[in-house]
Design a protein around this nucleic acid. Sequence first.
DNA 1: TTGTAGGCGTTATCAG
DNA 2: CTGATAACGCCTACAA
Lengths: 343, 343
Amino acid sequence: MKKYTEITIYDIAEKLNLATSTISRALKDHRSISEKTIKKVKKTAFEMGYQPNNLAASLRNKQTKTIGVLLPTVTQPFLSSLISGIEITAKKAGYTVMIMQSHDSYDEEVNLAQSLYNNRVSGIICSLAMETQDTSHFQIFINNNTPLVFVDRVPKNFNTYRVVIDNFSAGYKATKHLIDQGCKRIAHLSVGSEFGNLYSERKKGYLEALKDHNIDIDEQLIVRLTTVTYDEAEKGTNKLLDLKNPPDGIFTPGDILGVSALQCAKKRGIKVPEELAIIGFNNDPISEIIDPNLSTITHPAEKMGQAAAKIIIKNLKSLKKDDIKEITFLNTEVLVRESSKKK
Amino acid sequence: MKKYTEITIYDIAEKLNLATSTISRALKDHRSISEKTIKKVKKTAFEMGYQPNNLAASLRNKQTKTIGVLLPTVTQPFLSSLISGIEITAKKAGYTVMIMQSHDSYDEEVNLAQSLYNNRVSGIICSLAMETQDTSHFQIFINNNTPLVFVDRVPKNFNTYRVVIDNFSAGYKATKHLIDQGCKRIAHLSVGSEFGNLYSERKKGYLEALKDHNIDIDEQLIVRLTTVTYDEAEKGTNKLLDLKNPPDGIFTPGDILGVSALQCAKKRGIKVPEELAIIGFNNDPISEIIDPNLSTITHPAEKMGQAAAKIIIKNLKSLKKDDIKEITFLNTEVLVRESSKKK
DNA sequence: TTGTAGGCGTTATCAG
DNA sequence: CTGATAACGCCTACAA
């Protein structure tokens, strides 16, 4: 049985009695090649079913023109918008995107980072796994001058580019919004402290807003969740609503949590927003579907992706190891919907 | 300024006074290399910060050990479960997964398929874009003996592996369930006929079920949507509920549509399921959150992914061009929840 | 405008 | 058990 062999520029060269270099150049519309030759080469290349081999080209060029994207998961609406943003910018610049999911596991993240590096991605955009406590597995990118950008869930002490929102001020805004609506006892579902610490920033914003408005902090109103899940949030909300002196507002640092709280309140016959105002975070599609609509904090997710990709592309040519890498902050906004509109 | 150069097995060889071939073998625990050498090589490789270059290895080996995954989008819960399935199986076999999104655009799909091929993926798993009407852009994979598996939204006349559910029987089951609940006038939101025609199969199942149960088909009860969106479904449902003789049941071939119908009914003060029973399709997370819970059809999405990946891996070694490629059917089930439970 | 030749980093074959 | 060498497919500096 005949074994399959690739058709290479060498085959084309042979057929046309030209040099491989000519073929290579013609295929890329090199200006030093005559129109006629270019046409001829492309035509026969097509006829012969030639397919360029990126591996060979990348090896030779020492660049793959692909951006690696390493995320906890691809299902979170926020992250998928982020990907869209990356894709848009990457495409414009002629880059391909390679997506991998860590599933919030540190071990997987380590492996995939390796794998991405071994495939010599031109740059990498990463949002850390929940579990990740140290980021030494990204050191290879730094050491080898591969642009690295962290997004959203970023490490604290690591000199790299970061594209984030100001979680503190977003948490502040969300809480202030509830205060403005007349809430006096505002609860918070907080999520276990973590390395990327975006939840803890949101919580700090919450605390600060209360303080600034002379509202005493009641520890009973802060329920700590271990995971960001619907069920955990339900338990937490029940705990809050079981209090002698229950809250009249809840700020949840995520929409799933907000939706859960909302449903929980409804089940108990508590009117939202009249008796309990709720605001979430992220503007997930579900926040719009739920009844009443969930107020939330909007992220410019797609823009974050674009910003991250732009940093990669910009730095491909000029990257100095010890430069100080700036942090890009993007805006958040309070999106007021029914679940918090008391007035 | 010193320009960066990779550390290669050649560098290690030089340092240790060994041949590159020995290094290469040692790094892969080749049995012909002594324990001692292996240890020594690995140790210095680590110390020197050596990182294997997959591009070179792949070029040489003529295989990349990566599976390309080309999907409309990564956000649909069904598709992300599918990806999980692929990842699980791929990982077990030592394969990497490269995900790309066509965003349901034919042009993007063509480009990305090319790109995947140019990167010489070992195999490709694809669910077609909505727009796609012809699949000649996948011919290169066939021609070059690269295993190709279509999943869920598959082409009709193309001899490749396919992993699907039986959309016809699923549509039948969903409709029969409504009939069993006592519905007499069952509506259907149908989605514009398309190449992959999974929606039309579901519709056929719907029609057949009605026929088998001696229920006359009322064309007024079949509303055609042009896109699978919340808003379109809302319009469609309103149209149905505006009828003189409105339906007492709706089968929507997707959960977003089902949720939309449900909300729409609620807004109009129609009781679900008492006055209107609803069943969706896919078992998206949202179907569980919505109140009342949405009955639906479950997909074994993750299993489909695993099945597809297994086919790829199995065929990597033995692929004959003209073999007839089997179709793998996976089971669906009716998941009865509140939105359709009349009895 | 086109050709020659060497090398990107790895691995497999063949030889020792 | 280890070494020398060619080859994977492509690109580019240099030469013509």
